[in-house]
């Protein structure tokens, strides 16, 4: 059974402000399908002052969902709408002397119900924008959705980076395997070959300068392409792979992937990211193709 605080138990066994509020003029219905929790928050707001005169709730959910709803109604009563909007899910959890990490989403649901009810009162449309994933780090209550978005936004590639950015895995360390799984899944989904890390790319030239780039001669262009391919080789070699240019035909650059790159599941992703680097450094659109397609073209 969960390690609920006395306050949570008290609010579950004796929830405040339950039932239907007949004179409600702001109603928020929210739910989280993962936990099967659902909450209807009803507010009675005085139009002139925007003060919440009364609040009631109905909740389908576990003990902490009911306690969070009860706490929420107690917190908002007597506040103006603007004051109420400053209540965070941590405020709800703190009011209850804390929630188990697996149950923090109950407080998030409370905060969302509040936003939805106020939007409903103001005649606005409320859209839920938070994503919930599987709970990965129980010490810091970090779920997979948060790890995924931080990995994407910051181009993270290692477990250590994920811990630095999110704290996930920074305490008892028992979730490291799960973090690695999320990391691999996210990297595979964004098709970023681990070979070309954005952090290792040279700083892109200032936009103004690149617009004025002088047109390269054929020879200069080929040398430039060779230079770019040379620059990514050490990264591929580090993963026991390699790349060589076979031919350049107009916009098509034909290459051979070698060693560990051959038949690697990320082959397309590797080519894609090298192609991206070619775009940026050459300042023109080119296609990077496996040499096998050259034979087909002939």
């Amino acid at each position: 059974m969960w390690d609920y605080t006395e306050k949570v138990k008290e609010h579950f066994f004796n929830p405040r402000n339950t039932g239907v509020l007949e004179e409600a003029n702001g109603v928020g219905d929210v739910g989280s399908i993962q936990c099967g929790d659902a909450l209807r928050l009803m507010l009675k707001v005085e139009p002139e002052t925007e003060i919440i005169l009364d609040a009631k709730f109905q909740t389908f959910g576990c003990g902490s969902a009911i306690a969070s709803s009860s706490a929420l109604t107690e917190l908002v009563k007597g506040k103006t709408l603007d004051e109420a909007l400053t209540i965070s899910n941590q405020d709800i959890a703190a009011y209850l002397d804390g929630l188990p990490p697996e149950k923090m989403h109950c407080s998030v649901m409370g905060r969302e119900a509040l936003q939805a009810a106020i939007a409903n009162y103001r005649g606005e449309e409320w859209k839920d924008d938070h994503e919930e994933g599987e709970l990965i780090c129980k010490c810091y209550a970090i779920d997979s959705a948060l790890i995924e978005s931080v990995v994407r936004e910051n181009s993270l590639t290692t477990l250590e980076q994920v811990t630095h950015y999110t704290k996930a895995g920074g305490a008892c360390a028992s979730c490291h395997e799960k973090i690695e799984e999320v990391l691999q899944r996210t990297l595979a989904a964004q098709c970023s070959a681990p070979a070309v890390k954005p952090a290792e790319k040279p700083e892109p030239a200032p936009a103004a300068a690149s617009a004025e780039k002088p047109k390269l001669t054929n020879l200069q262009r080929m040398r430039k392409i060779e230079e770019i391919i040379e620059s990514v080789r050490p990264m591929l070699q580090r993963d026991h792979g390699d790349i060589e240019i076979v031919d350049i035909v107009g916009k098509n650059i034909y290459v051979n992937l070698k060693g560990a790159c051959m038949g690697c599941a990320l082959e397309a992703a590797t080519l894609g990211s090298i192609q991206q680097k070619l775009f940026e450094d050459l300042g023109e659109y080119v296609r990077l193709l496996p040499a096998s397609q050259l034979e087909m073209a002939h």
């Binding site: 219905d29 929210v30 739910g31 989280s32 399908i33 993962q34 659902a38 909450l39 209807r40 649901m109 969302e112 939805a116 409320w126 859209k127 839920d128 938070h130 994503e131 919930e132």
Partner: peptide, 14 residues
């Protein structure tokens, strides 16, 4: 009515 709500409760799901 001691029965399911007549108007089905359909919250905005996360």
């Amino acid at each position: 009515t001691n029965s399911p709500a007549a108007q089905a409760f359909a919250p905005a799901y996360a």
